[in-house]
Amino acid sequence: MNQYTVLRVIAKIMIPVILLYGLYIQFHGEYSPGGGFQAGIIFAAGFVIYSLIYGLEKVQQAVPPVAVHVLAAFGVFLFIAFGIAGMLMGGDFLQYRVFMEDNHAAETLGIIGIELGVGITVATVAIALFYAFAGRERD
């Protein structure tokens, strides 16, 4: 789709806004509707739009598939790490209270942590699924 000037220009303007909105949804999920799932999908949508307009190769140069797969595993790992951190500090699995003295701060820290894990997983899984379907050639 390289010849559509309107699409290229609009995409260039919109994609940073989409990514910023994804991050907003991710980190403002405690105070307004949102969280890791929605943020991950919106973040991935930015990459998908980019590759629809500029071609899959350009995106795969910036974000290679291997990095996506590793990051997906890292997201799940981050989630479990927060759970085990609670155990190591004397609590139960996924118990955040033991992180700090202040209950509210500890819970918020734990929630932000695992929402980050979920967000990374969802975003990278969505990108990886898109790569899998778009990168396959018809035979």
């Binding site: 969280g35 799932f37 999908i41 969802v122 899984v125 699924l129 899998a132 379907f133 035979d139």
Partner: peptide, 24 residues
């Protein structure tokens, strides 16, 4: 439901991948 939606799309993708293989 929030989690079910995301799981749903992952499973849809899985099904579609199988469809692609069946077509091949």
């Amino acid at each position: 439901i929030l989690t079910a939606i995301v799981v749903g799309v992952a499973l849809t993708a899985m099904g579609l991948a199988l469809v692609v293989r069946v077509h091949e």
